[in-house]
Amino acid sequence: MKMIEIARLRPTQVTHGEREIRAKTKAYRSLSGHELQMAIAEKPIPIVLGPRTAPYAIDHHHVATALWHADIKSMPVVLVRDLSLLSRAEFWLTMENHQWTYPYGGDGQRVAFTDMHEHVWELADDEFRSLSASVRDAGGYEKTAVPLEEFRWADFFRRRLPMSVSDGDFEALVRKAVRLAKSRAALGLPGYIGPAD
């Protein structure tokens, strides 16, 4: 499996969830030796090569950032597509057409591709992105292969729930969001499982 330095990975999104990253970083730091190597190997980063053969991560930004914070400097990647011969404009158009990028800030406003960060660990915190992951982990919806599903759920919660500030508030918010995720209001979102019978 091809390895790449995390510092070389270019992000294709503007935000990530700091709570999720802290939890993943703690998990990686608790491992060592073979266990750590296996944990790293099971989450290779899918990449697309862009102009000047720069590697763009199209998923697992949280994993890459958590590994970086855990002082792991390289990780395995899987090449999805080589778009290095395209112009910068053609590259980003192709990335959008394939839903391999999410150029929106935590406020839902679009960000210019020229303003996207250079490194995965520089992304802005979006509490609702952490909330969407926590709701999925709590059984509020199922993980699917739909691109950017966590962002769709984050935007759904953003329009309906206030954001918490403390860890206690966040846990209560997750419980509330799980109920919301199973309500008819979420019908049509990827991984929707509906109310329990």
Rank of each mutant, 00 (worst) to 15 (best):
H69M: 10
V77W: 08
H61A: 06
E171Q: 14
D107Y: 07
A7D: 03
Y104K: 08
A133V: 11
E149S: 14
H16I: 05
Y102M: 11
D167V: 05
Y104S: 04
Q37V: 07
P103L: 13
A64C: 01
R158V: 11
E118D: 14
Y141L: 10
R179C: 08
E90Y: 12
K143R: 12
A23M: 10
A185P: 00
E42S: 12
V174Y: 04
R8F: 07
A185S: 13
R175H: 03
A133C: 07
G108I: 05
R159A: 13
L189K: 12
I21Y: 10
E96L: 15
W100R: 07
I58D: 01
A186H: 02
I4F: 02
S183C: 08
P103T: 12
W153V: 08
R8Q: 15
M116S: 02
S132R: 10
G50K: 10
V111C: 03
E142Q: 09
S183M: 10
V165H: 10
R19Y: 12
P147M: 11
Y56F: 15
K2R: 12
K26I: 03
D155H: 07
P195V: 15
L187I: 15
H61K: 01
V14M: 03
S130P: 03
V77D: 01
R10A: 10
E5A: 12
E118Y: 10
V14R: 03
V48M: 02
L131K: 07
R136C: 01
R152H: 15
F157Q: 04
I72K: 02
G106M: 05
Q99F: 14
R110F: 07
N97G: 11
Q99H: 15
A124S: 05
H62V: 08
F91H: 06
V78C: 01
R110L: 05
T25F: 01
A64K: 00
A124L: 09
D137G: 06
V146E: 07
Q37S: 09
V178D: 04
